[in-house]
């Protein structure tokens, strides 16, 4: 394998990686807060809202992300009557799919974080005269986020790898360019290069979350 060859295939693959990173950033930035809102909705004492949120999470976690992407990209435009208004740019459609799917997972992670908080924390805050708002924002949420952090980190790494599903809706990304090169040049090297690029991306992410975890250790 030649050094020059890797350089030639690297250029389109890095462009593809930009698409991967763009999708990752959009998905994580929107799905984390959305997931948190979903947790609140599930916890809401207003039953219809809670049931709706639970149903949404069930559907999003219970069906393949690939199916969801295909439905949003190709299925929605086929709905009679309204379909023609649901034709989206495929990258935009993919972003929506990723956001909705990951929000459901993050909602479950945050809910787990809430469940892990001892009821004594609520009792101590109540007896000390905290308002509901202060109890939530000063005592419960900081602990919930800290408890959820390792699971959020894990899910984020999965998200990096799931971006390869863009391939299925024909948005050119890292894996797409790797496969093009493999088919054209009949060599495994582009796959290896793609693997290394994914590893680098997940490494950066893992180090980033380790750093946050250390900073929020409460010790």
């Amino acid at each position: 394998m030649s050094y020059e060859y890797i350089i030639t295939i690297l250029k389109p693959m890095l462009e593809g990686a930009q698409m991967t990173i763009l999708l990752f950033v959009i998905a994580i930035v929107v799905s984390l807060p959305l997931g948190f809102l979903l947790t609140l909705a599930v916890k809401s004492s207003f039953k219809p809202l809670s049931l709706l949120a639970q149903a949404f999470i069930y559907v999003m976690r219970g069906t393949p992300l690939l199916l969801q992407l295909l439905v949003i990209c190709f299925g929605l435009p086929m709905i009679p009557g309204i379909g023609e208004y649901l034709v989206l740019d495929r990258f935009v459609a993919a972003c929506i799919g990723f956001i909705l799917n990951y929000a459901a997972y993050f909602a479950e992670i945050f809910r787990g974080g809430l469940l892990a908080i001892d009821k004594g924390q609520y009792e101590a805050a109540q007896v000390l005269g905290f308002s509901k708002w202060h109890m939530t924002t000063r005592i419960i949420l900081p602990q919930m986020f800290r408890i959820a952090l390792p699971a959020v980190a894990n899910e984020s790494v999965t998200l990096v790898k799931d971006t390869a599903l863009l391939y299925a809706v024909a948005v050119p990304e890292l894996l797409h360019y790797a496969e093009t090169a493999v088919n054209r040049d009949f060599t495994i090297i582009p796959f290896a290069v793609a693997g290394v690029i994914y590893l680098l991306m997940t490494l950066v992410l893992t180090l980033f979350f380790k750093w946050i975890e250390r900073r929020l250790r409460f010790e």
């Binding site: 001892d118 924390q121 009792e123 101590a124 000390l128 005269g129 202060h134 000063r138 900081p142 409460f218």
Partner: peptide, 25 residues
């Protein structure tokens, strides 16, 4: 004031913050 069997200190706050947060709020 209430003192619990399992202390129920706020684990994400320092000793000083545990003491001062409630009166500050």
């Amino acid at each position: 004031g209430m003192v619990f069997q399992h202390f129920n200190l706020f684990p994400h706050l320092t000793v000083k913050e545990n003491l001062e947060m409630a009166p500050r709020l």
